[in-house]
Design a protein around this nucleic acid. Sequence first.
DNA 1: CAGCCCATGTAACGAGTTACATGATTAA
DNA 2: TTAATCATGTAACTCGTTACATGGGCTG
Lengths: 212, 212
Amino acid sequence: MALRHAVLAALLDGEYSGYQLAKIFDIAVSNFWHAVPQQLYTELTRLESEGLITGRQIIQQGRPNKRVFTVTGAGIEELERFAQTPARPGIIREDLLVMVQAVDHTSSAAVIKQLEERAETALAKVALFERTLERLRGETDEETFLREGSPIGPYLTCLRGRRFEQENYECYRSTAQLLRERAAAVEDEKGADAESATDSDAAADTDGPETP
Amino acid sequence: MALRHAVLAALLDGEYSGYQLAKIFDIAVSNFWHAVPQQLYTELTRLESEGLITGRQIIQQGRPNKRVFTVTGAGIEELERFAQTPARPGIIREDLLVMVQAVDHTSSAAVIKQLEERAETALAKVALFERTLERLRGETDEETFLREGSPIGPYLTCLRGRRFEQENYECYRSTAQLLRERAAAVEDEKGADAESATDSDAAADTDGPETP
DNA sequence: CAGCCCATGTAACGAGTTACATGATTAA
DNA sequence: TTAATCATGTAACTCGTTACATGGGCTG
């Protein structure tokens, strides 16, 4: 039962439907929590049945009706209790870095490509966080907002999100570049070896990535 | 089926038992994958039954025997296939940042304390990654190692781990400090208000954190 | 008119977590 | 002698993910 608190926290700044919440989880919340839409629908139902949130129906024309939810007093109390408990250590699972870890034993071209793609999406997220930060602070300048602006919680997590994605960008970028250069170096060696000794498996004495 | 690749990748640099692997997951691998020891034991059993790793018994005296595992050819092939597939988006779950997100609606003291603790553990991890990097590159200087050292995969993930924890340190540190200052400002206001108007709930017009 | 956006829900399945069980050695 | 380290395993349970189901409106 850990998702519930993330949902409650995300619902604090307004009324949202499951669908809208899924979007929020995809952008602003994505840097500290991951959840697929289905999880949110079921969690919202559960939270409502426990009285931590209340839903109300919004009749729409031209598109399906929806139910939007607000955190109740009991929900706030639950968050307060949560804030008093020791936070469990963060959980992270990054397939792409598993690939990097194993790159000495696999071909690297596909991994490099994915690193470059990820670097680009990270950059896009930086821009997105930037816009969100501007929206959150409104007319106020950052220094003043940090001192007395409100709500400060979402602002702080966005700040962290921006830094995190900036870091991701630089990291993925430079990793991709480095692996590219190393792969090129191995190719060069092969070329040189082919000229000097055309019969043997010349790359055997190098530590470069294998190309099976 | 995602843990398997993380286990295979971690096993690449030598023979490890489940117990040893758990330690590795706690340090070097922890910046891109999280798993509790029990998961590793069951996954190792499964991987062995599928022929992706082989185990051999080590008889020890003075302590329990253990089984250490090595990645097989089939295991490498599995990693190669894995490297060719699109990596799924990273998964992150950070309770502490959920607390920060909700901090406008809860008391902040406990959260601040945890942020400061986390900042310290992040700093310790930076030092740990630093030592691991030195060990990995041995006599070689970093520039040379990055160009032609081996294995480069673990080195790159460690580099990223160090940056990540450095970032965490700074972020958690400054967030804690900022929340501290804001909490102090609210206390000051209360004091000033108590002097000028002793009867009313004077903090009602401020945007500062509530203290329920 | 194909495909995406809005909007939600149920059910099955797969993965992750916790609890429990065992037991010897060594350091404080 | 209390606790920690080493070392593994089974079973129950909770949580997360995927598949499937529905259906109108809007865009290219």
